[in-house]
């Protein structure tokens, strides 16, 4: 396998974790609830999944526990912002603190766990034989990677082509209208915030049990949760663009690692190979790119006059609010 195949192949794996988290946030935001606690929920999912897998020896059970942990945290956010109508920004930040702190407390000593099982991998026959594309997408990949592939069309179809998706968009754009049609805005918002939490927990579990197995305290997720929130904005709340962004960022993460091992790039001496200290600038790339991606997303939103769900970040109070 050459350099680029390697980068993209690993990028698909990294991107899968990002994909789950991004899709989860996309659901919550489409429903009108901004949840900035993705990083915290991912860390909780990561530690719970890893801990449960270490204790039981069953990675699938671990993954389930991770998803439940993420979901549990998100319910806290849902209660505070939907029922109590508190500020969504502050509550999301609180969730990040809580998730990070709780995962550190629960993960104490977990870093030295041995023989923790991981999610199995397999290759898809025939498809994996396709030159270039095969090894990147279908060769010796974790089951979760294929789940991720399947998730993209499913989410797209759900959001744009199904009644449930219509309701989802309605409660995010104009909850009062949705309410008048008998859609239970509160219950649905709870549901989608919970779904977002479960997916963030899955993302965390995917990292510790499959993509980069192990628990490395708060560095386990290394800011993926925040990048996911940035990607949702970049994607203009569209699942397909969110998926592309996720895989792109996943690959970038791997690229910054691999490029340090190459002596020449297109015949030019590679500075990152010769000066180890320049690695810090490489590591900045995903974060810098997130900002650039945000600028692109925000400009597009202004130009096309579309973008965020109209009721994003606003509590819904029956009978009190007219147009948002």
């Amino acid at each position: 396998m050459n350099f680029w195949t390697n980068v993209l192949s690993a990028g698909i794996g990294n991107g899968t974790a990002l994909l789950f988290a991004t899709m989860g946030e996309l659901f919550a935001e489409r429903a009108g609830v901004l949840n900035l606690g993705v990083e915290g929920m991912m860390l909780m999912g990561a530690v719970a999944a890893y801990g449960a897998a270490a204790a039981t020896g069953d990675p699938w059970l671990g993954l389930l526990v991770g998803m439940l942990a993420g979901g549990f945290l998100s319910l806290l956010h849902a209660f505070v912002v939907i029922s109590l109508r508190a500020d969504q920004v502050v509550s999301g930040l609180a969730l990040t603190f809580l998730g990070t702190g709780l995962s550190l407390v629960l993960g104490e000593g977990l870093a030295s766990a041995r023989n923790v099982p991981t999610i199995p991998t397999f290759s898809i026959p025939l498809l994996s034989q396709i030159p270039f594309v095969g090894p990147i997408l279908f060769d010796n990949k974790s089951v979760l990677v294929y789940v991720g592939f399947a998730l993209i069309p499913v989410v797209w179809f759900y959001v744009y082509r199904m009644r449930g998706g219509l309701h989802l968009r309605a409660i995010g754009e104009y909850p009062a209208a949705a309410d008048s049609l008998g859609i239970d805005v509160y219950a649905l918002r709870y549901f989608y915030v919970l779904l977002g939490g479960i997916l963030a927990g899955l993302a965390g579990g995917a990292i510790t049990l499959s993509i980069t197995p192990g628990w490395f305290s708060e560095f386990t997720t290394s800011g993926y949760g925040w990048i996911a929130i940035g990607l949702v904005i970049f994607a203009q709340w569209d699942p397909v663009r969110a998926a592309i962004g996720s895989y792109l960022f996943g690959s970038l993460r791997r690229f910054t690692l691999d490029v340090q091992g190459v002596q020449d790039v297109f015949g030019i001496a590679n500075p990152f190979f010769y000066d180890r200290n320049l690695q810090f600038f490489l590591e900045m790339l995903p974060y810098a790119l997130t900002i650039i991606v945000l600028i692109i997303g925000s400009r597009a939103a202004i130009r096309k006059r579309l973008g965020a769900p109209a009721a994003l970040g606003l509590p819904y109070v029956r009978g009190e609010q007219g147009l948002v």
Binding site: L76, V90, L95, T96, F97, T100, G101
Partner: peptide, 15 residues
């Protein structure tokens, strides 16, 4: 992680 956890819980109870 206790301090961070306490901070998170505190922020929640505050809002």
């Amino acid at each position: 992680g206790i301090a961070r956890m306490l901070q998170g819980i505190l922020l929640f109870t505050l809002i």
